[in-house]
C-alpha cells in the first residue's frame, strides 16, 4: 500500500538541522584534537629543553608555505559558498577546484617534509631518534601523530570536495540547496583551525 512512504515522507529537508549536526561533529573533532593538544602541553611542560631543540629540527619554510596555502584554501572555500548563494555555478566550481588543488599540494609538501625526516631516521622507533633521549622521542612522536591525524583529515576533505564538486556540476547543489557545500566548508575550516595551532607549536616556538 504505502510502498515508499518510508523515504518520501519522513525524510524531510531541514538545512538548519544538518548544519547543527555538522557543528556538533566539529565539537567532537575539537575535543579529539584538544586531547592531543593537552598531551602536547603536558609533555612540553615536562621536557621544555627537548621540545625546544625538537622544534629547531623542523623546517619552518615548509610550515609557512603550508600555513599560507591552507589559509588561502579556507578563503576560497568560503568564497565558493558566496558564489553558490549568488547562483554563480562556474565561480563556485572555480573556487572549489582551487581549494581541492591546494589540499593536494598541502599533502605533497607534507610527503616531502616527512620523507626527509624519515630518511634521517627521525621516525617513531627510528635509531637516530632513540639516541636523542626521551623528550625528543616524545616531541617527534607527537609531531607525527598530530600532523598525521591532521593529514588524514585533509585526505577526507579531498574526498568531500570531489563529491561536492560533482554535485554542483550535476546541479544537485544549487542556489537554494547548498547545505552539503556549507558543511564541507565548515569541515575544511576546522582542518584549518587545527593547523593554525599546530603550526606555531611544532614549527615556530623554540
Amino acid at each position: 500500500m504505502e510502498k515508499n512512504a518510508e523515504h518520501t515522507s519522513h525524510v524531510h529537508r531541514d538545512d538548519e538541522a544538518d548544519k547543527l549536526g555538522m557543528w556538533l561533529f566539529i565539537f567532537t573533532e575539537l575535543l579529539l584534537f584538544g586531547m592531543l593538544f593537552l598531551m602536547y602541553a603536558v609533555y612540553r611542560y615536562r621536557n621544555p629543553v627537548a621540545f625546544q631543540l625538537g622544534g629547531e629540527e623542523i623546517d619552518v619554510v615548509i610550515g609557512v608555505i603550508n600555513t599560507v596555502i591552507l589559509l588561502i584554501s579556507s578563503a576560497t572555500v568560503a568564497m565558493s559558498i558566496t558564489a553558490i548563494q549568488r547562483g554563480k555555478k562556474t565561480q563556485a566550481l572555480l573556487f572549489l577546484g582551487t581549494t581541492l588543488i591546494i589540499a593536494v599540494v598541502f599533502l605533497v609538501n607534507k610527503y616531502f617534509e616527512w620523507g626527509t625526516k624519515i630518511e634521517y631516521g627521525f621516525y617513531p622507533g627510528g635509531e637516530a631518534l632513540l639516541e636523542l633521549g626521551h623528550g625528543t622521542v616524545l616531541f617527534f612522536g607527537l609531531y607525527y601523530i598530530m600532523s598525521g591525524i591532521h593529514a588524514l583529515h585533509i585526505i577526507i576533505g579531498i574526498g568531500l570536495f570531489i563529491y561536492v564538486f560533482q554535485q554542483i556540476r550535476a546541479e544537485k547543489i544549487h542556489k537554494t540547496d547548498y547545505v552539503w557545500l556549507e558543511n564541507t566548508g565548515l569541515y575544511w575550516h576546522l582542518v584549518d583551525l587545527i593547523w593554525i595551532f599546530l603550526f606555531p607549536l611544532f614549527y615556530l616556538i623554540h
Partner: peptide, 21 residues
C-alpha cells in the same frame, strides 16, 4: 604497534597521563 613513546615510560611517556585521558 609503532612504539611511538606516548605512554610508555621506557620511552619517556607518562603512564599516569593515560589514566587522565
Amino acid at each position: 604497534l609503532l612504539g611511538v613513546g606516548i605512554f610508555d615510560p621506557r620511552l619517556g611517556g607518562d603512564p599516569i597521563l593515560y589514566q587522565h585521558l
